[in-house]
Nucleic acid binder design. Structure first.
Length: 771
DNA sequence: CAGTGAGCGAGCTTCCGCTTGACTT
């Protein structure tokens, strides 16, 4: 056998490739693809009786990796376990050493702080042994999560609904959303009046305009009106001008959480989409690792940024900085997310990848740039003899600094002229062109979108960069939460307008929409019922500080100051009795709410979570009388539905009228409101109501759909009636029997012959057969 | 595609954190 090589094992294959390139032939670098062992999945996997002894197994999908690693170990004389420098990484190293049968004689633990030749060499020169305290901290974390998840979930199966789940992280995420929703429903908007004025002065034939807002708000229309009345004939003048210099410093480079937030805000990417794009960029070698809680940049990156900024913008734009992490529980095993090569402006790949890359690159550059210098000007305008004042503010950029590449405000320069104020002096008399008191309403707290939820979880120290996206997917998959758009409602607002040339105050009304939402997280009924159940019986686990509290103990274990089995035992002795107690003492939870009585039948009206989801039930079903049921509609919640709305659900299905001697029936199904005519179904368009739809309109809908159907068929063939060229939602396609086929680019649907179609079908089937 | 709801019971579901593919539409 030829010279036995050194073997390095890292977590990620992309990382393995780069390190292999740096080190050359003497080292083989392989990847473990994360953890290689875990607790047995089908059972608890913990022997409670014997000091919580974990039962670790290599899962099926990891067997191949493990056998390859075993082979590589055989061919190597020295093995370096180079997983990440954090709790999980240490545990991975330990599991590897156990499974691969390594010993301190033939294996060492090393950590890379950067993936650069000097850093890797330094790591190889400072090997150490596995830190078992750190490994134990990880085992405690793992086992606690398993105990919580695998003891709570089955209670939910029994008491609420099968297949549900609960856990240290997901249950708190759901709680945040449920509580926010309730805050929003409890919120009572209060109206107030905001007064704005347009002032001007003519000098040397030139008009200068100033927009200002009254520094005080009024609680009622009467107050606003009497104020306008009082100033109607007054003269105005500039009472004060102040200029204040200010600085704006750039934000830190991206972590997983801040990248998700910015990509959501600026690019409208979902958290999962952002991560999959970042993964591709990482694998192609364009960016550093994308699951990180660190804002650190390597020396290499700092140098590259300084060089690029100085060369392109000048020295005054460069300001090298190292940022400090402020997030709780950060482990900082990696760098911040940054481009591998800062001078690379374009990367190959999709447009979305390029956009995300651009965001990462600009954020990294900005973080190493000088702060922007601004001047904020405030002009105070006072009506003669009044103690109230109008204020106009403007901001001018004296030096743009990092703003040259990156803007961190929602909409920089919203509303024109916001930054600009005309040159005026104290004492200048002004005339008003128009003064308007506009009714406004106080705003409820904002609903979470995915990225806002990640931010909140990170703030609470709950979850890790690698789990933010999966957690959000899980709570949606379980049906606890839905991501939705809501159209919003309309309300009337009052305006009082005072115009220069008119004597009287004009009263107007205007419509505004409020509560419009896009891509926000709403709790479902099941989410609320599960949340309340858990909060009722396991308040400690659902506590926002639970993770922070146990993390302190994990830290103690990591420092060798606490025994991990002791810690788990203490936790379990508190936790488990509550599990048993809950199992014994509580009945089925349905979140039942009694809304009142149906005035027609006198029967009780109840809403609850039924076997197939939330329903309204009419009557208790005493005697021979069976209760009637109706499903709740999208957007309706057990918690907020009114008796009126609930009774409305029983008015369907309803006969709308007759068409071609057949009844038309309107109702709401799984896919929304529909009309049924004989055996054919027609959807009722958005915004129209099956309760009130007229016979006339229903017939119109049926006719329209028939027209569309006619247009749907582009070609039919005598040779084979089961073959059709149709017009579908995504354009023309071929239908043959029950199978659909795409029409290849360059072929016109209207001109396809029978032979051409059969050729397309044959080719497509052939291709499929191979794959 | 599109109305469910009484009830019998077997077998299954589930956590958090580390990592990527191999799948299908």
């Amino acid at each position: 056998m030829e010279s036995r090589s050194n073997l390095i094992i890292v977590e990620s294959p992309a990382k393995a490739r780069t390190i292999e390139k740096i080190l050359g032939k003497e080292y083989r670098v392989k990847s473990s693809f994360g953890h290689i062992r875990d607790l047995e999945k089908k059972e608890l996997g913990i022997d409670i009786q014997h000091d919580f002894r974990p039962k670790y197994v290599v899962p099926e999908e990891k067997k191949k990796v493990v056998s390859e690693l075993k082979k590589a170990v055989k061919d190597s004389s020295r093995i370096y376990l180079a997983s990440d420098e954090d709790r999980e990484g240490e545990a991975i190293a330990w599991h590897l050493s156990e499974v691969l049968g390594l010993s301190p004689d033939n294996s060492k633990r090393i950590v890379f702080h950067e993936i650069t030749p000097p850093a890797i060499k330094e790591a190889l020169q400072t090997p150490r042994d596995i830190n078992h305290d750190l490994v134990n901290a990880q085992q405690a974390r793992r086992i606690l999560d398993r105990l919580v998840g695998y003891e709570l979930s089955p209670i939910l199966w029994k008491k609420v609904k099968p297949s549900l789940s609960a856990g240290r992280v997901q249950s708190v995420a759901v709680r945040l959303i449920v509580e926010r929703e309730r805050e929003i429903h409890r919120f009572e908007p209060k109206s107030y009046y905001r007064v704005t004025g347009e002032f001007y002065i003519v000098r040397d034939g030139k008009v200068s305009l100033v927009n200002a807002e009254l520094s005080e708000r009024f609680e009622s229309r009467e107050e606003a009106e009497s104020f306008l009345e009082a100033i109607k004939d007054k003269r105005f003048r500039v009472a004060d001008i102040t200029r204040k210099p200010s600085e704006r410093t750039p934000p830190a480079p991206f972590t997983t959480s801040t990248l998700q937030q910015e990509a959501s805000r600026k690019l409208r990417f979902s958290v999962a989409y952002t991560m999959s794009l970042a993964q591709r960029l990482y694998e192609a070698g364009h960016i550093t690792y994308m699951r990180t809680d660190s804002v650190n940049l390597s020396k290499l990156a700092l140098g590259a940024a300084k060089k690029w900024i100085t060369e392109h913008y000048g020295e005054e734009y460069s300001k090298p900085r190292q940022y400090k992490t402020r997030s709780r529980g950060a482990q900082e095993a990696h760098e911040a997310i940054r481009p591998t090569y800062l001078d690379k402006e374009k990367v190959p790949g999709s447009a979305a990848e390029q956009k995300l890359y651009d965001l990462i690159r600009k954020r990294t550059l900005a973080s190493q740039m000088a702060p922007a210098k601004l001047e904020k000007t405030t002009i105070t305008i006072v009506p003669e003899g009044s103690d109230k004042s109008f204020v106009a503010t403007g901001e001018t950029i004296l030096f743009d600094g990092y703003l040259k590449v990156y803007s961190d405000k929602e909409e920089e320069e919203e509303g024109e002229g916001k930054g600009f104020l005309p040159p005026l002096e104290v004492g200048t008399p002004l005339q008003y062109k128009q003064i308007t008191a506009t009714e406004r309403f106080t705003q409820p707290p904002a609903r979470y979108n995915e990225a806002m939820l990640v931010r909140k979880l990170e703030e609470l120290g709950i979850g890790r960069p690698s789990t933010y996206a999966p957690t959000i997917t899980t709570i949606q998959q379980r049906g606890y939460v839905v991501k939705e758009d809501r159209p919003g409602e309309s309300r009337q607002i009052h305006l009082l307008v005072l115009k220069e040339e008119k004597e009287k105050i004009e009263k107007k009304t205007k419509k505004e929409t409020f509560g419009k939402e896009r891509g926000k997280l709403f709790p479902s009924d099941i989410g609320m019922v599960v949340n309340d159940f858990l909060l009722d019986h396991f308040p400690d686990i659902l506590d926002y500080n639970f993770t922070a509290t146990i993390e302190k103990q994990f830290d103690e274990i990591a420092q060798g100051k606490m025994n991990w089995t002791e810690m788990i035992r203490r936790f379990y002795e508190e936790f488990h009795p509550k599990v048993e107690e809950t199992e014994r003492s509580t009945g089925r939870t349905t979140g039942e709410r009694v809304l009142g009585k149906d005035p027609e039948s006198g029967e009780e009206v109840i809403v609850k979570v039924g076997r197939y989801g939330p329903v309204v039930q009419l009557g208790r079903g005493e005697g021979d009388k069976k209760p009637r049921y109706a499903r709740l509609r999208k957007g309706q919640l057990i918690e907020t539905i009114t008796l009126e709305e609930a009774l409305g659900l029983f008015r369907l299905p309803r006969t709308v009228g007759t068409f071609e001697d057949t009844e038309i029936i309107a109702s709401i199904g799984r896919y929304g409101p529909y009309l049924r005519h004989g055996n054919t179904f027609y959807s009722i368009p958005n915004g129209e109501d099956p309760h009130t739809i007229t016979e006339e309109r229903a017939i119109e809908i049926i006719r329209e759909k028939r027209e569309a159907e006619k247009k749907k068929v582009i070609r039919i063939f005598e040779e084979d009636p089961s073959l059709q060229v149709l017009n579908g939602r995504w354009g023309p396609y071929i239908k043959h029997g029950k199978k659909n086929y795409r029409i290849p680019k360059g072929q016109k649907a209207e001109e396809l012959t029978y032979e051409a179609c059969m050729e397309i079908i044959r080719k497509a089937d052939e291709k499929k057969g191979k794959g």
